[in-house]
């Protein structure tokens, strides 16, 4: 009896410790966002308040401008990534391609190499082309980095579409193009949406590429977070961090709705 009691106590203690290690850092973020004044040696904020939330959410403020920039860049990145990935994904799933495995690996490479070393050279090339500090420059950098998600997932989505439905449409006289747009594409849509969400988040959270290519004109939320934090303004940094967390958590809760098992099992094949 005492042994099971001791065992239960140990288990509860372990779970509480783990919860503290995981939730604690996030809780500290929330504390800072509501701290108007907080300094050593006080364990909790000296003055509580929502003043900094007002500063961040003021429509004319820097934070709202960064949020608008971040969302525009993420939407444009999704557009660019899907525009090249839908044809590529279809070809990889359905057509006979030489060096198919090699082509799949090429899209993985940008994620498999230490990024900083690549981005400093992208920035140098962009400088010659007048692309540093432009939205367009940042968008294509984000898109190239996220292609592994969009190409691999759209390809899996096309591979999961039942071919007999396409043959049936062709048999009753639909052209290949008409079949693609009325049968294949709508059936692959949930997988394509899932890949779009991956690309959107990847772009929204991206720091390193924007840091080198976006300077000095493009300020996204991660860059605002960084400069606020390094400048010692932990309130602005924490609130920006919390804004960035919202889409990540929504994604964690809903991703399984879009990414079904039949598509999931074909990713990377």
């Amino acid at each position: 009896m005492t042994r099971t009691l001791a065992g239960a106590t140990l288990k509860v203690t372990l779970l509480v410790l783990l919860a503290f290690a995981i939730i604690g850092p996030l809780a500290n973020l929330v504390l800072w966002s509501f701290a108007e004044r907080w300094y050593f040696p006080f364990k909790l904020p000296v003055t509580w308040g929502v003043r900094y939330w007002e500063v961040v959410f003021r429509p004319t403020g820097v934070a709202m401008a960064s949020l608008a920039t971040s969302i525009s860049i993420a939407l444009l990145t999704v557009t660019v990534a899907l525009a090249v990935s839908i044809p590529a994904g279809y070809a990889l799933a359905r057509l006979r391609l030489p060096f198919r495995a090699l082509i799949m690996i090429v899209f993985l490479l940008p994620q498999a190499f230490p990024g900083v070393a690549i981005y400093i050279n992208v920035a140098r090339i962009f400088y010659g082309l007048g692309l540093t500090g432009t939205i367009a420059g940042v968008v294509i950098v984000h898109a190239a980095h996220a292609l592994v998600y969009s190409v691999w997932i759209t390809s899996a989505a096309f591979a999961a579409v039942d071919r007999d439905l396409e043959f049936a449409a062709r048999n009753i006289g639909a052209s290949p193009g008409w079949t693609f747009f009325t049968v294949t594409l709508p059936l692959a849509a949930p997988g394509i949406i899932a890949s779009a969400i991956f690309v959107f988040l990847e772009s929204l959270d991206e720091f390193t590429g924007t840091f080198f290519v976006g300077v000095p004109n493009v300020s996204t939320l991660p860059l605002l977070l960084y400069s606020a934090s390094m400048g010692g303004n932990y309130q602005i940094a924490s609130i920006t961090a919390l804004i960035l967390l919202v889409p990540s958590i929504l994604f964690m809760l809903f991703v399984e709705r879009f990414l079904k098992a039949d598509v999931l099992s074909k990713i990377g094949r």
């Binding site: 090249v84 070809a91 057509l95 090429v106 490479l109 940008p110 190499f113 981005y119 090339i125 190239a144």
Partner: peptide
Amino acid sequence: GLLLVAPALALVTALFLVPL
């Protein structure tokens, strides 16, 4: 097929393979 893959490959080439 290669024509359909070409734009995506061009993007990776320009923004990853060339800088590498």
